[in-house]
Amino acid sequence: MGSVRRSQHIKCSPDKAWQIIGDPSRLHEWFPIVSCRVEGNKRWISLANGLVFEEDIVLVDNYLRRFQYTIVNNPIVTQHLGTVDVIDDGHGECIAIYSTDMKPNVLALGIGAAAHNGLLKVKKILEGTI
C-alpha cells in the first residue's frame, strides 16, 4: 500500500478552515483540479489533462473535522482511501492534514504532490494572502 501524508499549519480557526476543506463541493477552489461535481455521496473530479475520477464520499464528520473519500470504478486504482483532517493546534489556529493510502502504490506520491500544492493554496486563501 502506498501511503503519504502532507500537512500545513494555517493561521485561522479550525472552524473557518473546515468550512472550505470540509465541503466536498469546494475542492476545486484549492486542489489542483479544474472542476468537481457532487451528487449525494458521489463526487466526480476533473483533472487538467482530461482525466475524470469518480469518488465515493465515505465520511464528512463535522465534529472530528474529518473528510474521507475513496476513488471507485477506476481501471488503475484498485484500493484507495483519502483522509483530510483539520486539527486544532491548541492556540486557536489549525493544522490541515491530507493523507492517502492506495494501490497502485506510486500513485499515492502523485496525489501527495497535488495535496501539497492544494494545502499551500488553501493556506493562502484562508490567511488572505491570495
Binding site: 489542483p32 483533472l47 506510486v106 500513485l107 497535488a114
Partner: peptide
C-alpha cells in the same frame, strides 16, 4: 521534473 504528473503540476 517528474514524468508521472497526472495533476500537471
Amino acid at each position: 521534473e517528474p514524468l508521472l504528473d497526472p495533476f500537471q503540476l
